[in-house]
Design a protein around this nucleic acid. Sequence first.
DNA 1: ACCTGAACACCGTTCAAGT
DNA 2: ACCTGAACACCGTTCAAGT
Lengths: 185, 185
Amino acid sequence: VPAPAKTSDEAIVAAAKRIVEQDGLEALSMQAVADAVDVRPPSLYKRFADRDSLLRTVQAEAFDDLRHSLERVPAALPPPERLRRIADVYRSFARRRRRLYAAMFYDTGDRRPEDVTMRARTAEPLIRAVTDLVGAERALPASRLLTAFVHGFVTMELSSAFRLGGNVDDAYAYGVDTLIGALVK
Amino acid sequence: VPAPAKTSDEAIVAAAKRIVEQDGLEALSMQAVADAVDVRPPSLYKRFADRDSLLRTVQAEAFDDLRHSLERVPAALPPPERLRRIADVYRSFARRRRRLYAAMFYDTGDRRPEDVTMRARTAEPLIRAVTDLVGAERALPASRLLTAFVHGFVTMELSSAFRLGGNVDDAYAYGVDTLIGALVK
DNA sequence: ACCTGAACACCGTTCAAGT
DNA sequence: ACCTGAACACCGTTCAAGT
């Protein structure tokens, strides 16, 4: 007599994502996820090999969300303005979903091709804009300069690293403008 | 009959730091620390309120180590060269002690003044060099631009985020030089 | 005055037994 | 075919009892 499924992969991932968004990565226990979908913890192992595997699926969805946000910046905008917009969308995403953003960069040790492409695809809108700005030859290091700044800035901001006063919004705008100005010339 | 102390604050912190350096933050259990200093886990609570408190002490030592490395860059060097050296020392530290570096930024939720000043003091050598380069008015946002880039770059590098090929050393030098060039003009 | 065994509430995970 | 209680090895932490 087959037992009917009480939940689904999608419901489990959605519950896990909600837990991470609301209470952070440390709140993501198999017990909490099981409670949210009304099964007992061992049932989750029918669908996900372990907690890391479930977390990786949440990370993949989060990177997809971020990529979709970035892709809504019109590709027709002139590259400098497009990069400003991309940088703003990126920071807004991180601030709006700060716990999820932090969890996206928790290293599960996964080095499978899918994981690599998932993360690489998120960078594509920015790389296209940088390529349009500086040309294909300089595109890779220039993209790394911009992504390192943007990721570093929001990471530090979210961990309250900017404690010397001053306006953080202005510092971000200053950084983005200075970088775009340096790349354009 | 007083029982003689079997260990010390210093020995416990040293053991904890060694564990983090060698096996990462997730290996830092009270059991592992207790084993290393040859006591039972409950004894550690005589000296540290909890695991987070011990971790914060390890973080403070790590920030001190980083600051001492940065302070060995001669203050007499011209600001652009000084900043290049500071950026290189910073990246070397993160690469040489990658697990410790990652643990330095684990957020324990501590917002006490000591914690704030500890982190702020690490930024001082860079802020001084940036001030010498761009003047006091622009020093704060310019320092944030540089630290965000440097921290973002090494964090991404250590989590294997640069997977599109190209020379990562060159990308770092390109980033640092581009930033210094943009600030100097 | 410091150390420790025992205990508690929690983890992630496995597996045999249920339907 | 999926679900679950029971169990295992681990956590962090507390505390009464030892010397």
